[in-house]
């Protein structure tokens, strides 16, 4: 029971932190916010790693490898695509710098 209350406390506090941080994200970055937070939700990868490595049963091994694959797609794809988008938001700034130099 104690561990449940501790987990619940963390859950509730994390939701408050989430609300505080995310309400400060401007609308122009909402798409990267979605893909970026999506990558973070790929944290289930750590659960899947242990399950795939422990190999309890054949079924568990198959499910494990599927779970690792799904979560890795989520993590790798999510962070990469977010990076790609965010760099586009930076480009105009470098353009202006170049103009100033020339």
């Amino acid at each position: 029971m104690d561990s449940f209350i501790a987990a619940l406390t963390i859950f509730v506090l994390a939701i408050f932190v989430g609300f505080e941080v995310i309400t400060k994200v401007p609308p122009i970055l909402h798409t990267p916010l979605m893909s970026g937070s999506n990558a973070i939700s790929g944290i289930t990868i750590i659960g899947s790693i242990i399950a795939a490595g422990a190999k309890y049963t054949t079924l568990a091994a198959i499910l494990g490898v599927t779970a690792v694959t799904f979560a890795t797609i989520n993590v790798v794809g999510g962070f990469l695509v977010t990076h790609r988008m965010l760099q586009m938001f930076q480009k105009p700034k470098t353009d202006q710098k170049e103009k100033k130099k020339s």
Binding site: I10, F11, G18, H30, L33, M34, N38, I40, T44
Partner: peptide, 18 residues
């Protein structure tokens, strides 16, 4: 696992706000 709970809540909150 706390890191799962924290990350999940952050993403859950983000989705709800949007």
């Amino acid at each position: 696992n706390n890191v799962l709970i924290i990350s999940g809540s952050l993403v859950g909150a983000s989705g709800i706000i949007l």
